[in-house]
Nucleic acid binder design. Structure first.
Lengths: 243, 243
DNA sequence: CGACAATTTGATCTGTCTCAACTATGGTGG
DNA sequence: CCACCATAGTTGAGACAGATCAAATTGTCG
């Protein structure tokens, strides 16, 4: 699959694109760059002049807090545009780092602005993209604020599973979540040790089935129930009417 | 102060507005409505056809999670537009409720869309508004995920203090945060009892000085330090260059 | 004044953290 | 091709931050 197709596929989880929009996207010049695992794609406190798109692999947005602790704010994969806000907010308030080796495309703010100026539909999709991002953040706030360790981890699994499935990135035998237990802890606000113990319980209870970083959903009803998961907050385009 | 002036003042914490933009804002027809304390301004799972603006009093965005627990996602006061996302996302993924008696203005999506279509500058400000909202959510994620009870509560105080000050809503003798300790708990992911004990410690240590819901900052350096607070994430217009 | 809501206090319990060791696992260089 | 090393996962024991339950006290407002 071509790089531009990944972007298009991703944006079409939000709304249907016309041929002219797809053309415009394919015409965007893109600088490609590969990053090693754990490399900083964009660092905290920098100033971006380009937007990045994840082409391959997985990345995470993060923020450092006092005492060397780190918080993971969101998880991203092929087609995701994790720093759209850079278009309007010069100063980065968080960083983006590679969870696996990744290929990233960089598109200058200038070209994006020029393109959306002539393609109202694209501007709308990107606007919706940014707003859905915010909706996901809200959900994470609720998770961290009022859920137990098991609920939090189960919720992350549910979200990643649904988002990957919407992109066709999950196989019948499961989906790949190449995060260490320490990284999952940074995302769930838990210590690595506790993540380990909770995941053991989830496996024993048949909620998930794991082999390395390949996870399968053992029982979706019980997993999503344990997580108190409701996919509405992802605002995925499911019915033609919402398109 | 007129209702429209509150909106203008709020938007000017983001970027400077020209006379033509201010005119356009004043021309927006607005339906006004008063709500009692704890009333639902917009309920979860509804569909909005109007945006709301807080004119007087305080409101909070919230989400309910399993077991009757509630999470407060953000705190809002005069001039805030807490459901801009409704413009592009039909389905509400959270609710908005009144922390105090509030007056709210409702402006239809249609008029807003028509106005920003002819006022590029206004569209930009609202875009920035929504993106700053998301930045604040990210900060809250980091707070909940990797900070202690005292740090979380201190951080909320810092944020509210700075945001209110930027609007001229804090007096020399302090600022009014009319939330019960139970509500603060919903915002910080803590039990009401623990909020109480932590606030007692903050008062004893001179970080804050409280009389009812009127709070004064005892020692900004020590308070912001205890909270690990850095106002960058608020993206306030501080220097003329960023405007 | 009475009543209801909010705050405060005390006692106990528990989920999660921390520290520390041990066991895979996979990659690298000799 | 194997020995080694680093990284991730696992296990155990103990400590602690914050929750829960219950009661007392202090507003505050009709």
């Amino acid at each position: 699959m071509q790089d531009y197709d990944r972007i298009i596929r991703r944006l079409e989880t939000i709304s249907k694109l016309g041929d002219s929009e797809k053309e415009a996207l394919r015409a965007l010049p893109m600088r490609r760059k590969a990053f090693a695992e754990n490399a900083d794609i964009i660092s905290e406190d920098s100033r971006a002049t380009e937007c990045c798109v994840i082409l391959d692999g997985m990345a995470a947005r993060y923020k450092h807090v006092a005492k060397g602790r780190r918080s993971i704010l969101s998880i991203h994969f092929a087609g995701d545009l994790p720093d759209l806000q850079g278009l309007h907010l010069a100063h980065m308030d968080h960083g983006i780092s590679a969870l696996t080796p990744v290929r990233v495309g960089f598109i200058s703010h200038e070209t994006i602005k020029a393109t959306i100026a002539t393609h109202q539909q694209l501007e709308n999709v990107l606007m919706r993209y940014a707003l859905i991002d915010a909706s996901i953040f809200r959900q994470w706030i609720a998770n961290l604020s009022r859920r137990t360790a098991l609920e939090r981890i189960a919720h992350i699994f549910c979200e990643v599973y649904v988002r990957m499935s919407a992109l066709g990135l999950s196989a019948p035998d499961g989906f790949r979540l190449p995060m260490t237990q320490a990284e999952l802890g940074d995302a769930a606000g838990l210590s690595p040790v506790h993540v380990n113990r909770v995941m053991q319980r989830m496996r024993k209870d048949g909620l998930i089935i794991s082999r390395g970083d390949l996870h399968a959903v053992g029982d979706w009803d019980r997993l999503s129930n344990a997580a108190d998961f409701d996919e509405n907050y992802l605002h995925l385009r499911r019915d033609p009417i919402a398109a």
